[in-house]
Design a protein around this nucleic acid. Sequence first.
DNA 1: TATGTATGAATGAACG
DNA 2: CGTTCATTCATACATA
Lengths: 229, 229
Amino acid sequence: MEWQNFQEKQLEEEEMRVDMELGQFQNGGLFVKVMTDEQMELLRKQIAVYTMLCEQLAQMHKAFSVQHDITGMRFGNPYLDPLLTSGGQKITARQRWTPTPVQLQILERVYDECTGTPNKQKIQEITSELAQHGQISETNVYNWFQNRRARIKRKQSGGGSNMEESEADTHVESKNKNPESIQLFENSAARAEHIFSQSPDIGFEQLVGKMEGPGSYSPEWEVEGYSML
Amino acid sequence: MEWQNFQEKQLEEEEMRVDMELGQFQNGGLFVKVMTDEQMELLRKQIAVYTMLCEQLAQMHKAFSVQHDITGMRFGNPYLDPLLTSGGQKITARQRWTPTPVQLQILERVYDECTGTPNKQKIQEITSELAQHGQISETNVYNWFQNRRARIKRKQSGGGSNMEESEADTHVESKNKNPESIQLFENSAARAEHIFSQSPDIGFEQLVGKMEGPGSYSPEWEVEGYSML
DNA sequence: TATGTATGAATGAACG
DNA sequence: CGTTCATTCATACATA
C-alpha cells in the first residue's frame, strides 16, 4: 500500500535524525549514544503509549480476524474472542495465584467444615495459615470460596436436566445464541476484509503475532542490557 | 486491583534497573544515559515495529469507527448490540450491562469529581450523558457507584497484603521459558497503565487521534530533539 | 502446536 | 451500605 512506503520513508528519516541529534562520543573504546534523563523519560512514555495502543489495537485486529474467518468459512463458531480485559482489565498480562497442593488441601478441609459463609475474620485466619505454605492473599482466599460455592451450586442445579448455559458448555456452539452479534461482526468482517485482505501483509501478521504470543518474544525485541519497557 | 499494585511495584523496580544498567556519567554538566550502537539499533527496530503496528491498526480503527462506534463497544460483547439490531429476535438478551470504555471513562471521572453518593438528580444526569455512548439505565449507574464505593472501601480496610512477589517461589510457573522477555513486555504494560493511571482505556481515543492527526503531535509526544514517529 | 478444561479474578446485580 | 450471588473473562495446564 501507499502508506507503507510512506512509512518506511519516514522511518529512514527518523533513523537519521536520531543519529544526528543524539550526542555521540567515545566511552571506553566504544562509540555510544547519549540521552538526558528527560529524553529517556519521554522515550519511555512514548513507548508505553505505543505499547498500549498496539495491544489494544492488536486485539481488535485479532477479533476481527476471527470474525472474518468465520464468515469466510463456516457457520459454526461464533465464539467471540474474549478480550479487553474488560476494561482494561485489561489487556495486561495478569498473573494469577495458583494454590499449592497443600493450600488446596487446607482450603477444602475448611470448606467442608464451615458450611456457612466465611466472614472476614475467618478469611484472615485462613489466609495466615495458608501463608505458611506459600504466597497468598486474603483476596485469593475470598475468591476461592466464592468460586467454590458458585461452582458447586451450579453443578448441582445443572446436573439434572438442561445444562442451561453453564460455563461448562461455554465452549463452542453454546455461544451460537446470538445471531445479532454475528451479524454485527459480519459487517465488521467486511470492513476488515476491505482493509486487510486486499493487501497480503505478511509482515504485519507476524508482528501482531509477536504481540499476542504466549510470552516468548523474539530476542530482537529486547534491547540488550536493559529494557525500555 | 491487587495485581495493579503489584505491577506498579514491578514498574518501580524496572525503572531503577534501567538507571543502573545504562551507562551513566556526566556530560557537559548533565547526567546522561548511554547506549551502544547495538542497543540503539535494537531500540530502533522495536520502535519501528511499534510505529508500523500502531499506524496500521489505527487506520483500521478509524475505518471501523466510521461504521460502528467501535470504541464504544467491547469486542467480545454481544450484549448490548442485539437491542439495537433490527430483525432477529434477541433470543436470550443478556441481562447484564457492561459499560463501554467510553462510559467507564466518564463514570470514573464523575466518581473522582463528586465525592459522596450521587443523588437521584445526579444519577439521571449521568445516565443521560452515558446513554449517548450506549445502552444504559439509571439502575446501571446506581449499581456502578454502589459497587465502586463498596469495593474501594473493602480494598482499603482489608489492609491488604497482595501477591507482592511473583509466585516464582510459591508454586512455580515452569511455563516461563522466557522470563526476561515476558517481563519486558509486562513492564511495558504496567507502564502504560501507570501513565493512564488506573483507567487503561482512558485516552485511547485521544492517543489514536494523535496518531492520525494532521501532523502536529503534542509536545509531550516528542522526545525533545527528535521525534519517534 | 492446537484445542479443551479447570479455575482465579473481575464485576453487574441483588439481597438483608 | 455491606455482603453475597451470578456471570463472564482470562490464564494455567492438560491433552491430542
